[in-house]
Write a protein that binds this DNA or RNA. Structure first.
Lengths: 114, 114
DNA sequence: TCAGTGTATAAGTATATGCTTATATTTGCA
DNA sequence: TGCAAATATAAGCATATACTTATACACTGA
């Protein structure tokens, strides 16, 4: 229940980014931890360039962070972003995307490199 | 702290509508009660058709309700809409728009017809 | 019934958006 | 060193969006 008052412009910018089914699903998936690009491609059933472009928008806005691990690039939520509290509230009110990752795991397609 | 789980599609649709500075300001103004179209035109400093078109989008999505009072049409938040809890959380995290209505009142432009 | 005020709609236009295909870049490994 | 895999970027294109101006509609009051 944070009361981090941000500007209306910042809020609108974040909401616009999250007001897209693909990107909202992406942040929904990241709620449970980091994911790499190829996992998004599998789950979203979209082309790799399209996924990459959505991730870039989220990253440019600072909503997600990226981290390279070998040949993979992992994305995660940027919990220190000004609008993260809003995003968190939104994620609490939409269906959990966890099952999609579980299905991916069962198909042996989950990337783990620790 | 409702836990009204809505579909991801519905959430995305609402967020897309609120992801616009004009429309976010409109719902921000409605947080404190109903407003008529000409008040939005004054506060937002936009053309009447433009305001009308934004209101129509919000109304078509069910986020706001309209009520005619004589020659004026008043809009208010639709608190029974499925995505209202999300909207409420968002409104709690952006600056209050009340001052703009107070300024309008001081300029003698606030419409009251009860 | 007619003029004035408030609001909605229609049509046109410039820009934004989200995809596609093609190609570049980075890294791992034989 | 060279090829394959993972990711990013570029360019092109169709559709969506948000404004504009012009006009239609609804209600009020003389």
């Amino acid at each position: 229940m944070e009361k981090t008052i941000i500007t209306l412009e910042e809020a609108a910018k974040t909401l616009k980014l999250l007001g897209d089914k693909t990107r909202l699903t992406i942040v929904g998936l990241l709620k449970d931890g980091e994911c790499c690009v190829c996992e998004f491609v599998d789950v979203l059933e979209m082309s790799q360039p399209s996924v990459s472009q959505h991730l870039r928008k989220l990253r440019d806005a600072g909503l997600v962070k990226e981290k390279r691990k070998g040949q993979w690039v992992f994305y995660s939520l940027n919990t220190s972003h000004e609008t993260y509290p809003i995003m968190e509230e939104i994620l609490n009110q939409i269906p959990d995307q966890k099952e999609k990752l579980i299905a991916l795991d069962k198909a042996g397609k989950r990337i783990q490199c620790d």
